[in-house]
């Protein structure tokens, strides 16, 4: 949590990230064409036929892959794999915690998620809260219908800022 003046009625300052991110603005170089291409592929990915929950987990990479992580200045992008459950949550926790210590902001692409359990959702929620405490940012981008449904069922969609957000265009 941000420091609080003793007499202030404002505790944690939710806008604090803005001053820090100003210096990183130039690191983002997307143009409209890239936006359309990215958005189209994201939507295609969200709608693509992906393995269902009955799949053989041994054959599927379950966690965020390093190879799918791109870095833009102090920002990292993580693409979540389709099936996320308690068997893999510890590894995911380790990876995301490590990334949080290395980057100012993490964008988590949840477009391909077809199954996510409460353990993973709780991990993401804790990660987001931890990031706030560190005055860093975590955003869930392109949440799939299953991701939104699961987070709403657990009642944490708002806390995760998971809505069918305009950010889904990116």
């Amino acid at each position: 949590m941000a420091e609080k003046d003793e007499d202030s009625l404002i505790g944690y300052d939710p806008l604090a990230w803005m001053h820090r991110s100003d210096s990183n603005q130039d690191s983002q170089r997307d143009d409209v064409d890239e936006l359309e291409s990215h958005a189209a592929s994201a939507f295609a990915s969200a709608n693509a036929e992906v393995p269902g929950p009955e799949m053989n987990h041994d054959e599927v990479p379950i966690i965020a892959s390093e190879s799918l992580t791109s870095e833009q200045g102090e920002r990292a992008i993580v693409v979540l794999e389709p099936v996320l459950n308690i068997q893999n949550v510890a590894v995911l926790h380790q990876r995301l915690t490590q990334m949080l210590s290395n980057f100012e902001a993490i964008d988590i692409d949840a477009s391909g998620v077809t199954m996510i359990d409460t353990a993973t959702l709780q991990l993401l929620l804790i990660l987001k809260q931890t990031a706030i405490g560190l005055q860093k940012s975590i955003s869930i981008d392109f949440p799939s219908d299953k991701f939104i449904e699961a987070s709403e069922l657990l009642g944490i969609a708002e806390m995760l800022e998971v809505d069918q957000a305009a950010s889904g265009f990116f």
Binding site: I10, L15, Q25, D30, V32, L35, F170
Partner: peptide, 19 residues
């Protein structure tokens, strides 16, 4: 104020993408 923080994140993404 919290909502404004979220909104500014969205606006900055649009500004970046639309250049």
């Amino acid at each position: 104020l919290q909502g404004l923080s979220h909104l500014m994140g969205t606006i900055k993404k649009f500004e970046s993408a639309l250049k």
